[in-house]
Amino acid sequence: MSGNEKFLKVDNLVVEYTSGGEIVHAVNGVSFSLERGETLGLVGETGAGKTTIAKSILRILPDPQGKVRNGSIRLDGVDLLELSEREMQGIRGNRVSMVFQDPMTSLNPVMKVGEQIAEVIRKHNKKMERPAIQKAIEMLELVGIPGSRAMEYPHQFSGGMKQRVVIAMALACKPDLILADEPTSALDVTIQAQVLEMITELKIKQNTSMILITHDLGVVGNVCDKVAVIYAGEVLEYGDKLEIFLNPSHPYTVGLFGAIPDLSVKSRRLTNIEGLPPDPFNLPVGCCFSPRCKNVREDCFKRKFPLQQIGEKHYCSCGYAPLGF
């Protein structure tokens, strides 16, 4: 039953990378929250900062280049950024786990898949009634891989199956939160459908919360409950999926929807967003999207706009969005 305390609350997260003496402003004040069992879609293009956010939650940013400069990440009230490394190790793979994008490189090529799953289980369970490998086989069956294949090596599996193994590993300790970083982008469309279906089923069964990172609005539409649109390390639009899909407000979000060739819409030319994503070494003063915005005003170059509520569960950071254009 949901209390007032949100399950996951990220507040004003600021993350920087140092590269060759210069600073990359990867995440610039991101806030969002998640209830138990909810799925949040983090949508944005390459370099927007989505993966950085996920890695910050798990505290697996590259050290010493990546640093969290500000903000808090509260899981059930506990700020993960304040925990010791040892405490974090108890959380990774156990309460919070991550599925990475490329299944080809996420698995250890010289270890049998069953062993890899069993290893996660053993790490987080001191006492066990049965050997971990048995539990690992159960997990494989859960993701649709015959248990007999537990003793095979990753190279003997196809891309889709490798990703399922990775998901089995992520779910092995029944985590409360899964961070999925473009889990199906590297897969064929029909396999993608299979894997997404499976993730959704398991999520419901175990009441796991999920943060799904993707650039594909279609996937978001199918799987997520909430959406946060990320651009240049900031949240531009945030809220309930239905509200955002039916009424996209931020010019960037509108542009994203317009740039996607949609099966149901037949038009020869696609509306596109001119220009390029900003240089994170050199972010624009004022609204980060202002250089590319078709409806930009004088004001936009000078000041930033905080997220404002424009619907029941709908927030937008464009100062001129609700007025329409």
Binding site: Y17, S19, G20, V24, T46, G47, Q65, L276, P277, P278, D279, P280, F281, N282
Partner: peptide, 11 residues
């Protein structure tokens, strides 16, 4: 790809 190369829009 290194961070720098990914974000290269200057020049």
């Amino acid at each position: 790809i290194s961070i720098r190369t990914r974000f290269r829009t200057k020049k």
